[in-house]
Design a protein around this nucleic acid. Structure first.
Length: 595
RNA sequence: GGCCCAGUAGUUCAGUUGGUUAGAACGCCAGCCUGUCACGCUGGAGGUCGACGGUUCGAGCCCGUUCUGGGUCGCCA
């Protein structure tokens, strides 16, 4: 093994071109591949910028040639040489016109054969990739994702700085608060039996910063939520978090449209049309069955409750009479695209969302077939066709339930599933949407009370203030989400900024005065000393980067992600700790502990 | 906590109705090769079929349990 010993790199591999021919260059990197042709050896050297071919032939020093012969994939090399034009060029790579005639070769590190090949595209299973994440990250695909992530963060810092925002850090060790996601807890050694919580978001701190007069704040904020994982959810993740004083909804939206425009221009060279379309929560639910609708395709929901209200098909009539609804989507061309077997799969699909079933009507070329038409009159069937706008060749899918929430959630998911099966989801098509006027509360079956849908510091809409304690179901908040292609990219709200309103809110949420004081006293107390009207927004950075690179999971844009059971395969954490450590913290393990 | 999918060589996979010695490609090792670039050619090594238990004369294949990973519902202010 050799050392650098004064060796200085002059160039990255991927950047050299014909202009550099004749120059002495020094490069460093990993061996992608060694091709031994007998009296001629080629080595592809890889660094984060790309690949440069090293050439060894009869003009090469014999010792160097022998060394080149012994080199294997993933060895780390430092190489000096003269750049020359290739006699046989490779049109497929940027450096394909040139190669380095090697005059000095140092093997800085040998490498065992890796458990999987370091290639751009991979179909190696996730377990192996994550166990050897440091090797997986060598792949150009991952290098691009991580580099792009850096660029997004850099763009955010520049943009918010240029717009008068200060980047301010808030604590990682914070106070656990009720409401919302489960906290990660950190035991205190100095205060045995007491715990910090890792922040779910810097929410309260950033509000207090507004009160302190910083006026505009942002932070690239690490956040933690101890909940189950999904393709777009990790227990620790990063937000681009911001807050502004003396603003209302429109001001927050405007500054963020500028941000999104800048990011997409800088990172992808894509122009975003502004202003971005806005839609109320109520409209989003009614038309798309979702508060984060994917607008890359239609397949809108259609309420057919009035048609089937008195029909002879109990599956339809009963839910309507119980205050629910019957809604449909029309899938153009679906009659042929979805044979019976696929429809059966869709039936199973909606059941996972709590729907009891899925009714369908197929308007095929050779006549109509349906799971329900025989229970209804011709007029009723025709009315359904008319209202959904179905034509010959289409497929109507219908969900009925006594609870509207179930209908929306099943059909909202179904329209996305149909779009996926029809190939309507193009990754380079970016459809943004602001969803506004979210409900202030939602009913929690588990707790048997109304809880804050966004969070308890969200301001109600001015015209709904009187409904806070009288009509929780219909009370709307100054809360908004930014949605991109069916993914919630970020969310925010205008906050409550007076102690009176904050007290009213806690009362509406069922907190006693004492509860509110213990949990949120610092915030209510602070509001007494002059809080400016303020509001903000937080983006899921990981999700944003995921959509920018077209990845299917945020794991693909996080350097060291966790797997579904929240462990990390490379370091094998979480892990047991010494009894001594536990004793210091005053913690005793119960029989629930895993071995 | 529930449901669905996957697990066979280093990797990605095939493996018929349960039947002799479990195959392929890539990778790896060795030899040959002066213009390759997914180099080529020849040869070779490499397997606890995730684990445990059961059924059977006989299990990669059937049954049960379990582990690991993925997706998802619940959950995620």
């Amino acid at each position: 093994m050799e050392s650098l010993n004064g060796f200085k790199r002059t160039s990255y591999c991927g950047g050299v071109r014909m202009d550099d021919v004749g120059k002495q260059l020094s490069v460093c990197g990993w061996v992608q591949r060694q091709r031994d042709l007998g009296q001629l050896i080629f080595i592809d050297l890889r660094d984060r910028t790309g690949i440069l071919q090293l050439a060894f032939d009869d003009s090469t020093d014999r010792e160097i040639f022998k060394k080149a012969f012994s080199i294997r994939a993933e060895y780390v090399l430092a190489v000096r040489g003269t750049l020359r034009e290739r006699s046989a060029k490779n049109k497929d790579i940027p450096t394909g016109d040139v190669e380095l005639e090697v005059t000095e070769l140092r093997i800085l590190a040998e490498a065992e054969t890796p458990p999987f090949e370091i290639t751009d595209q991979t179909d190696v299973n996730d377990t192996l990739r994550l166990k050897y994440r440091f090797l997986d990250l060598r792949r150009p695909e991952m290098q691009r994702a991580i580099a792009l992530r850096h660029k997004v963060v850099k763009t955010a810092r520049d943009y918010f700085d240029e717009n008068g925002f200060f980047e301010i850090e808030t604590p990682m060790l914070t106070k656990s608060t009720p409401e919302g996601a489960r906290d990660y807890l950190v035991p205190s050694r100095v205060h045995p039996g007491k715990f910090y919580a890792l922040p779910q978001s810097p929410q309260q701190y950033k509000q207090l910063l507004m009160l302190s007069g910083f006026d505009r704040y942002f932070q690239i904020a690490r956040c933690f939520r101890d909940e189950d994982l999904r393709a777009d959810r990790q227990p620790e993740f990063t937000q681009i978090d911001l807050e502004m004083s003396f603003v209302d909804t429109d001001d927050v939206i405007q500054i963020n449209e500028g941000f999104l425009k800048t990011v997409f221009k800088q990172v992808l060279d894509v122009e975003i049309e502004t202003p971005i379309l806005r839609m109320t929560y109520a409209e989003a639910m009614r038309r798309y069955g979702s508060d984060k609708p994917d607008l890359r395709f239609g397949l809108e929901l259609c309420d057919i409750s009035d048609i089937v209200r008195g029909c002879g098909f109990k599956v339809f009539a009963e839910p309507v009479s119980k205050g629910g609804s019957v809604r449909a989507i029309n899938v153009p061309g679906g009659a042929q695209q979805f044979p019976r077997k696929q429809i059966d799969a869709l039936v199973e699909f909606v059941k996972t969302y709590g729907a009891k079933g899925l009714a369908w009507m197929k308007l095929g070329e050779d006549g109509m077939s349906s799971s329900f038409a025989k229970f209804m009159t011709d007029d009723e069937n025709d009315a359904i066709k008319g209202l959904t706008g179905a034509q010959k060749g289409d497929l109507i899918l219908i969900v009925a339930d006594g609870n509207d929430k179930t209908v929306f959630s099943a059909l909202g998911a179904l329209r996305c599933e149909c779009a996926r099966r029809l190939g309507l989801l193009k990754k380079d098509d970016f459809k943004f949407l602001w969803v506004t006027e979210f409900p202030m509360f939602e009913y929690s079956e588990e707790e048997g009370r109304f809880v804050a849908m966004h969070h308890p510091f969200t301001a109600p809409m001015d015209e709904d203030v009187s409904m806070l304690e009288t009509d929780k179901e219909n009370c709307r908040a100054k809360a908004y989400d930014i949605v991109l292609n069916g993914t919630e990219l970020g969310g925010g709200s205008i906050r409550i900024s007076t102690p009176e309103m904050q007290r009213t809110m806690f009362r509406a949420l069922g907190f006693t005065e004492e509860d509110a004081e213990v949990r949120f006293g610092h915030l209510i107390g602070a509001f007494k000393y002059g809080a400016p009207p303020h509001g903000g927004l937080a983006y899921g950075l990981d999700r944003l980067v995921m959509l920018l690179v077209g990845a299917g999971s945020i794991r693909d844009v996080i350097a060291f992600p966790k797997v579904q059971n929240a462990s990390e395969l490379m370091t094998a954490c979480p892990d047991a700790v010494d009894k001594k450590q536990l004793d210091e913290l005053g913690i005793a393990l119960t029989n629930k502990t895993e071995e």
